[in-house]
Design a protein around this nucleic acid. Structure first.
Lengths: 340, 340
DNA sequence: CCTCCGTCTGACACCGGTGTCATAATATCA
DNA sequence: TGATATTATGACACCGGTGTCAGACGGAGG
C-alpha cells in the first residue's frame, strides 16, 4: 500500500475498489455517492496522505482559488525597508484570503520598470490586488490596459476621476479634516502641511484638501509657502521640515501626509530645539507601529487595515463572481497621543 | 483575429500556420525550430497577448516554479500586529524568489491549531519556507512528519540537535556574545537578561547562552534572579522589566532577546525614573525599524535579513534540485546607538 | 540515381483531475 | 408482473500545455 511518488486518485480508486470518477466525487462530497463508499474512499485517501493536485484541478475548472498581490514599493526602494503601513495591509489581506479559502501570491514590484501583472493571463490567480502609492509614471496607462483585457483587479488608494478601476480606500479627505479639526481645537494659528500637494499622489492630495478646506472654512489660509513636498519616507520628511525652518516659516501646527514623514519631522524639530507639542503640534497619518514608540508618541489618523484587507478581498471576489461592486471608502479615526 | 476568452497555443498555431507542437517549442526557444518560424510565432503570440497557462504547464512538467512561505505568528496573535522582524524577512524572501524566477505563496498560520503544510502535496509549490519562533507545541512532530513525507523545506531559526531539518539562522550565540562584550567594555557590573532562558525557544536560548558564557568567562555570574522570562512582544518586555524592578534587582546593563522586548523594557525603565544609558544600558536584538525611532535610539544586534532571505531561497532551491545542502549560519552585527 | 544525414515539423500520448452521459442495480407504483 | 423512477457507478472526453517519435524535405556523397 505504498505507491512510489505521490498518490493520485487512481491509486485510491484501486485500493478502495471503485472507479477514479467515484473517488473524485466522493472526495468532493458529491451527494451522488453512497455514504458507505464515501467513507471508504476518505479512509484510503487519508492513509495514502492524498491531496488533490491543484494544477490538474485548476486546469479543468479554469480557476485557481488564488489571488495575487502586487506591492509597489516607494520609488526610493531601498533593499531592506518597506513601508510598514503596506506590510500591515499585507498581513490583513493574507488573513482575509485565508478566511475565504484562497491562497495569496505575493509579488513586490519596483515602480520604475514596467511591472508584471500577467497572473491572471497565465491562470495563476483569479484576480489581482494592487497596493502602493499610485504616484508614478504610466500607472494610469497600465491600469487602462488591465481594464481593456478584462482583468479582474482592485486597487488600494484614492478614487480618481476618469479612471474606471475599482478601488478601496481610506476616506483621506475626511482624515485630513480630522487632523485640522483637532489642531483647530487647540487654537493653533499657523499651519503647515508636509506631503505631496500636487495631484501626483491622489491619496496625499486628498488628505491635503481635507486639511486645507477645513482650515479655510475657519478663515485660515494655507499659502503655498506653508506647504512642503515630501514622499513617504523619514528622510524626506526630515529634509522638508528642515527647509521650512531654514526659510523662517513660522508654524505651531504641522500635519504630515504619513507617519514616516511625521517621524522625520519630529527629528528635525528636535534638532532645531522646538518642543513638541509645546512649540509645534504634529499629526501624522497611518498609525504605523513606530508611531506609538517614538517620543513624543505621535498623534495620528488611523487607517483600519484589518477592514481594508477584508474589503479588498471581498470586493475582488465579488468582482470575479460577476456581481456589481462599487468603490469603498473606509472611515479614518483620530488616535490622540502626545504630539498634538 | 480575436478569439473569445483567452488565447491558447492552438489559436496561435492557427494564425501562424503551424502546428501547436511547433508553437510550444518556438515559445520556449527550442533550437529545433526554424528562426523564421519562431519569429512569426512570437509575433502572433504578442498580438494575441498570449501567456502560457501555468496550470497546464505545471501539470505536465510536475513542478510549479512556486515556493510557499508559512509564517507562524506569535502565540499572542493579535489581529493587527505582526512581528516586524518577520515582515522584513518576508520582504527579502519575496525579492529573492523573484530574482530566481519563482513565485511566492504566503500563508499566515496560527501556531496553536495545527497548521497546513500541504502546498507541496497538492503541487502548488515545489518547496516550503518555515518562518517564526519555533516555540510551540508539537512543532517538532510536525517537522518530523514533513521529513518523513520527503517534503522539501527549510526553516528559519536555530539548529536543534536531533532534528534533521535544514535550517538557516543567525548566529544567535555569537550575537549574544557581541552584546555582552559591548556591555563589558563599558565596565557595567550588574547584568540582567530578558527573554526565554529555557530551551523552549531555541533562538532565544542561544542568545542567552552566548551572553551568559561571555560574562562568566570574565568572572561575572548571571544568577537565576537576574533572568526574566518574556515572549517577543513589547508588553511582555515591559512587564518582565517591571517585575525585576519590583523585586529590587539591581542592574546597570540589560540585554533583551528581541527589540520588541527591549522597547517594552525602555518604557518600564523610563517610568521608574531610570536614565538610559546613564543608569542602565540596554541592548536589543533584530534591528527592526522602530529601534532607530525610539528614544533613546536602541543599540541592538542586527540580523542580515536580506542575506537571510537569499540563503533560505537558495538552499531550498538546491534541496529541490537534489544537491547537498548544509545548515547556514549568518554573522550578526552590533549596531551601536544611544541606549548602550 | 540511390543512400544517408541533418533539419524541421506534425501527430499523438500524457499529466491528473472534472463533468457528462450511459447504464446497471434497486426501489416504487399501477 | 411490467413499467417507471431513483440511486450509484463507470467510461470517456476534456482542460492546455510538454515530450517523444516518426517522417518529410533538401543537400551531400558515392
Amino acid at each position: 500500500m505504498k505507491p512510489k511518488g505521490k498518490a493520485t486518485s487512481f491509486d485510491i480508486a484501486h485500493f478502495a475498489g471503485v472507479s477514479q470518477s467515484t473517488v473524485s466525487r466522493a472526495l468532493r462530497n458529491s451527494p451522488l455517492v453512497n455514504e458507505e463508499t464515501r467513507r471508504r474512499v476518505w479512509e484510503v485517501a487519508k492513509q495514502l496522505n492524498y491531496k488533490v493536485d491543484k494544477n490538474a484541478s485548476n486546469l479543468r475548472t479554469q480557476q485557481s482559488s488564488t489571488l495575487a498581490l502586487l506591492l509597489f514599493e516607494d520609488p526610493t526602494g531601498d533593499e531592506s525597508q518597506i513601508n510598514p503601513f503596506f506590510l500591515n495591509m499585507l498581513g490583513s489581506i493574507t488573513r482575509a484570503c485565508a478566511k475565504q479559502g484562497y491562497d495569496l501570491l505575493v509579488s513586490f514590484q519596483s515602480t520604475s520598470q514596467d511591472w508584471r501583472a500577467d497572473y491572471e493571463d497565465s491562470h495563476r490567480a483569479d484576480g489581482i490586488i494592487l497596493l502602493g502609492y499610485g504616484d508614478y509614471m504610466d500607472y494610469q496607462s497600465r491600469l487602462q490596459q488591465l481594464l481593456s483585457q478584462d482583468t479582474k483587479f482592485v486597487c488600494w488608494g484614492a478614487t480618481v476621476d476618469g479612471r474606471d478601476d475599482l478601488t478601496v480606500s481610506c476616506d483621506n479627505y475626511g482624515g485630513g479634516k480630522l487632523a485640522a479639526e483637532h489642531l483647530l481645537q487647540q487654537n493653533r494659528s499657523q499651519y503647515v502641511f508636509i506631503g505631496d500637494a500636487s495631484d501626483h499622489s491622489p491619496e496625499f492630495f486628498a488628505r491635503f484638501k481635507g486639511f486645507r478646506d477645513t482650515l479655510t472654512a475657519q478663515g485660515l489660509a494655507l499659502p503655498e509657502r506653508q506647504i512642503a513636498n515630501a514622499i513617504s519616507t523619514e528622510e524626506s520628511g526630515y529634509h522638508a521640515t528642515r527647509s521650512l525652518l531654514a526659510n523662517n516659516i513660522q508654524f505651531d501646527a504641522l500635519f504630515a501626509a504619513s507617519d514616516l514623514i511625521a517621524i522625520g519631522a519630529l527629528k528635525a524639530l528636535k534638532e532645531a530645539g522646538k518642543d513638541v507639542p509645546g512649540d509645534v503640534a504634529v499629526i501624522g497619518f497611518d498609525n504605523i507601529a513606530a508611531a506609538s514608540f517614538i517620543s513624543p508618541a505621535l498623534t495620528t489618523v488611523q487607517q483600519n487595515t484589518t477592514l481594508a484587507g477584508q474589503m479588498l478581498v471581498n470586493n475582488l471576489l465579488n468582482l470575479i463572481k460577476g456581481e456589481a461592486v462599487t468603490d469603498t471608502l473606509l472611515p479614518p479615526k483620530l488616535i490622540v497621543r502626545k504630539s498634538a
